[in-house]
Design a protein around this nucleic acid. Sequence first.
RNA 1: GCCGGGGUGGCGAAAUGGCAGACGCAGCGGACUUAAAAUCCGCUGGCCGUAAGGCCGUGCGGGUUCGAGUCCCGCCCCCGGCACCA
Length: 889
Amino acid sequence: MDERYYAEKIEEKWQRRWEESGAFEVEIDPAREKRFYCLEMLPYPSGFLHMGHVRNYSIGDALSWFKRLQGFNVLHPMGWDSFGQPAEQAAIKRGIMPREWTEQNIEHMRGQFKRMGFSYDWRRETAAHRPDFYKWDQWFFLKMLERGLAYKKVSAVNWCPREETVLSNEQSSGGVCWRCGAAVEKRDIEQWFLRITDYAEQLLEDMREIEGGWPERVLTMQRNWIGRSEGAYVDFPVKDAEDVVRVFTTRIDTIYGANAVVVAPDHPAVEQAPMRDDVRRFAERVRAERAAAARMPGDEEEKEGVNTGLLAVNPFSGELIPVWAANYVLMEYGTGAVMSVPAHDERDFEFAQKYSLPIRRVIERVSHEQEQIDHDPETEDQSVAMPHAFTDYGILVSSADWSGKLSADAKREMAAFAQQQGFGEPATTYRLRDWGISRQRFWGAPIPVIYCDACGVVPVPESDLPVLLPERAEFTGTGQSPLASVEEFVNTTCPKCGAAARRETDTMDTFVDSSWYFFRYCDPKNERAPFDPERVAYWTPVDQYVGGVEHAVMHLLYTRFWTKFMRDIGLLNFNEPVRRLTTQGMVVAETFYREGEEPGQKVYFNPSAVEVTRDDKGRVASAVSTDDGSPVLVGPFEKMSKSVNNGVDPREMIEAYGADATRLFSLFAAPVDNDLRWQEAGIDGALRFLRRVYSTVYRWRDRLRDTPSDASAAGEFSEAARRLRHETHRTIARVTDDFENLRYNTAVAAMMELSNALGDFKTTPESASPSDAFAVREALEALVLMLTPFTPHVSEEMWEQMGHGPEGMLRGGARWPSFDEALARKEQVEIPVQVNGKVRGRLLLGADAGEDEMRSAALSDERVRAWTEGKEIVKVVVVPGRLVNVVVR
RNA sequence: GCCGGGGUGGCGAAAUGGCAGACGCAGCGGACUUAAAAUCCGCUGGCCGUAAGGCCGUGCGGGUUCGAGUCCCGCCCCCGGCACCA
């Protein structure tokens, strides 16, 4: 053991040993009941590890070590989300084939993962782009096709003009591409969809099972995204036509106030309308304006509409009302038609005002005392009396026999009535759309169907899977998918009739791969099925999943859907794939820039190319380029990224500080779910701490080897030794609890406190009594073991130096330290004494002192008498072990 | 607008209703050193005070309680999601 802490040397040594001994390789072990599946979201193999990865995987790795040391059989795998755009971009720019580029990147990144010392069972590695994996994407697709869950239709899809491909609703949220940020266009394209909407209700319902285990904000996002809305359909017959216009409403109780039916400009009912030409021109204009404006989210168009000339019959009242087409009704939601009730809906109110349509109030506030009736119920048009819509629930008025009922009751009863009369029904709608998975790209799993002139759409037989991607294609970056121009791929024969046929050339969204990859880790080599259900039953559901919050809706919704589907085809027997989810915050760093030539343009500097001096408040005093000494401006903290050039290369950190210190800092600097501000100075502190522990072990190692491991053999403990032992056991209790709850920052803080306590224990190895040496040994062993999940290399090294074998902690049977409840409690405690809730002083008492003992100790203390200044004592509040509060008048 | 999460020193952050600011960063002072680095020791919320000590302090205003950063009510602000969703 070197006196100095050489991170690189230690890390290299233990990485080699782990590799040689297969330290993290696991198998199903029925004898061990306790198993744990620790999973982190798999990376896209861009080729380079960034700080976000380091943080994400350090969080998961720490938990996997913790559970291993606790004796769990821990599955901790890693793989590659290796299909997707960048590989094709590389092909276009540099002429390298996607497969080659991807494999090189994986090779390189795996090396970086190993250099970080992450404890994966690499034998289980999977990669989406390998045929033995994507074969099962295709297999799942066929299963969905069989069950009618996959279907093809022409629809207006979200199209990213920059990447020339379709995006799903989830991927174009906010009107921009999730990957490149380009404004999304609408295009009519025929594509494949998966019926995730069939599972909308379950996706909501099953959230109960994971509540508490998943962050509230993720569940909220999913709830918002699914957007369940309960109400009713009502059919409005169109006068002089066979047709009805079906509307969806959540407020059927307001139907007597309907002044019109309003449909989307592209609603089919418009076809027969007398004024259809007007409506078509209007629809055209709306479409053009929307395309031109590239609407930002939150922007509302001014409400506009045209009368279609149709008349509809209110099925409840028999009243004839006009049918309008308006831009504020969306074809994509509900039925594309609404009943307009201006008195009780803000939007209808606005519309009615603009076009002077009648406004009729049919709901009153229940408590009349609070509000005077502000209109004359006899007149029809009360728009003057209503400054805005009344949208609350209330009591029905002017609603024939329904008058006098409460909104909540009326909603239920009127929907039931409509159903009974055959002109409607109770209904629930969702905002969630089916998942469009077709991508006009090369680098994805080919959708396994064949188009035959005679037989139509023919699924590829299971026995022909996988449909392999061709090795080569032309990547021009323009026109259609590169796959479509590979003749050998496209041209095939029909599996049904044998005639010449063409393959589907669209590939699947890469989110298909990530929907089920973690089940494959359980049985990665299976050639006959995506996985063996029994193996999956042993390992899954995932106990802990760690990843970025940016996947709250996309990946995490899709994988929940996929899990339910796998359950329905008998592969699984549970509803939810992940018991506990943690979404870690981003790694952010200061930005540095100089104003560029163009106004508003900025030239960003990497932090490593900027020399910063700070004032005594830590603010930046000056920043200059290390290149030429020219001044540089300081921008806000932003997520580390290429676009603002504020990324810190983990390799530089590993070189300068070692993997252990880098990992330790990334876990200590902030709670896992907060953003982490990367500051070089912080990592110094982590390294200092490690060096202190290391040098303590170094100084004590010879002495510790011949120190008994049994407390009873150590003899009488000094006061200082007793204090140290208390600190040790208290720390174990705290750290164990912190690990269970992924509070790594406080776990590290607690260990630093123990290390400080060791520093305060002044005994030297030479002069230490057997009992002193025992107390040090106990503290150091606990410290080293508890540090292992954060700093595995140096911990292993210290463990070995403390007299354990070279086989490493796991092989050597090292276990997470346990604590003694009694030792964790102090023998004597300082009890704060309050007078009227304000702390005046402290009382030294036995930790086990009871309520009466504490009270009498306080009252007999003469200082207390002085503090109360002879005032009358009203009562004495005593919290055993915590405080005494003397209440005086 | 609706839903969710927050607001504590110069900074990152701690605090089962019970000593606010643990731990760390930055800063200041000291030891060691020819010197620097490294290391070690001490100080470090604000105000008053030489000191002992005192007063104030967890976004704002109320409340509950012997006692509130924490619980309740009403606001303000920030972050995230959804949003002409009928």
